[in-house]
Amino acid sequence: MEEIIRPAEVDVDRFDRPRRVGWLDLDAVFRAKLLMVGAGALGNEVGKNLVLSGFRDITIVDMDRVAMSNLSRCMFFEKGDAEGSILKAEALRDGMNSLADKGAVKAVACSIEECSTDLFEKSTAVLGCLDNIIARMYTNAQSYHAGKPYIDGGMEGFAGRVMIVRPPGGACLQCGMNRSHAKMANLRFSCTGSETTLYEPRLASEITTTSLLASVMVREIIKHVSGRNDLMLSNAFFYDGRTNRAEEFEVPLNPECPVHLQ
């Protein structure tokens, strides 16, 4: 029987456009369970891309509260959230659910180190939208040991980096770290009393760099859940927003990295 088409029919289906991408497995996107750690500037952009792409089951972990200075970089935070000192995870959850098709975004308001490791075990993949090295190292290690792909974004001003970690093989995030990371991690650790962080990066994140990195991160997750690891970045993507130059680097596995020794 011949297929019947009608004018404007293509605009009825919310996901008509992604369905046309041959390699994209939209059903796998609908089924995927994602863990997103960090609900700041990068978390907002990643969250927007995830729900518009069709991801439905997302757990956000973040312990911070919305501040007025977040509003120029975070599309889901409003003035009232800052005035009410609302938890970032909850404000982001509400914003994402309002955009989502069948939103089931959940918020966990604590540091990732305090969460049950079940969160990693139950996830299809993990996204790191963090703002410090210690939480990154923890999230990287837990994801690796749970055998879950970890996609980490980091940025400062116009500089950005995305690292793709795909256990059980290959390098992890910590494999690419050196003494400069240890120094900054120690500095932050020594400056962190209770929940007050005194050390801040030199330059705040900047929305256009944030937006580009978030796109790369979510595109890589879509490839992974669609079973197209062959299309994924090998492991490291560096971006310089001032020149708009992006390059793919290789971070080799470090045999001394503690993540692989456990």
Partner: peptide, 26 residues
């Protein structure tokens, strides 16, 4: 890799290395 000696890392006379920011913000 940070801990590697330059000889082990394959760094030779006249090589050009690049110092690239690996930002930690989010």
């Amino acid at each position: 890799r940070g801990t590697q000696a330059l000889s082990d890392a394959g760094v030779r006379e006249d090589d050009m290395l690049e110092l690239v920011p690996d930002p930690e913000g989010g």
